[in-house]
């Protein structure tokens, strides 16, 4: 290799490296740009009202939060997710058979949320529900609890 070739190869390598890293960094920056830093979405933890707002018997469906609030005389409060674990459709609770039915691909969940039928890969989530200082029920969707979790009031 003579001097000339040496410079050609080294400059070529430097140039190529600059190009590749430039493109790589730009690409990473673009992807990061597309990833929102702030979500203007409802908070994951929210108050749903006083215990007295919820009747005994069939669960109350909260539309915006997409949750079912169960209130049982002996056992207390429990909150189930209404979002099907398959592809995110909103499930309905049928009081006739005490199960959750998904309209999209026919998943059926038992009363405790476990999958009985259909393509859903896992049970419906149950969320933590606690009593806030002001006496209101506080649901935290970031805290998934076992189906037998109950809040007694």
């Amino acid at each position: 290799m003579n001097r000339r070739e040496f410079f050609k190869i080294s400059w070529g390598t430097v140039g190529l490296a600059a190009l590749v890293s430039g493109v790589g960094v730009s690409l990473a920056a673009v992807i990061r740009f597309l990833m929102p830093s702030v979500f203007y979405e409802p908070p994951q933890s929210f108050k749903i009202g006083e215990p007295g707002d919820f009747p005994f018997g069939p669960p109350t469906f909260l539309v915006d939060e997409k949750i079912f609030v169960f209130r049982d005389r002996e056992k207390g409060f429990a909150v189930a997710s209404a979002v099907c674990t398959h592809l995110g459709c909103t499930v309905a609770h049928f009081s006739s058979d005490q199960r959750f039915h998904c309209p999209c691909h026919g998943s059926v969940f038992a009363a405790d949320g476990s999958v009985q039928h259909g393509p859903a890969p896992r049970a419906l989530d149950w969320f933590e529900v606690t009593m806030a200082r002001d006496g209101k029920l506080l649901v935290n969707k970031d805290k998934v609890v076992p189906p037998n979790y109950r809040l007694m009031v």
């Binding site: 539309v63 997409k66 499930v91 999209c104």
Partner: peptide
């Protein structure tokens, strides 16, 4: 309506 999934969707 995010709350009501049409059946079938």
């Amino acid at each position: 309506n995010p709350a009501r999934t049409p059946n079938p969707a």
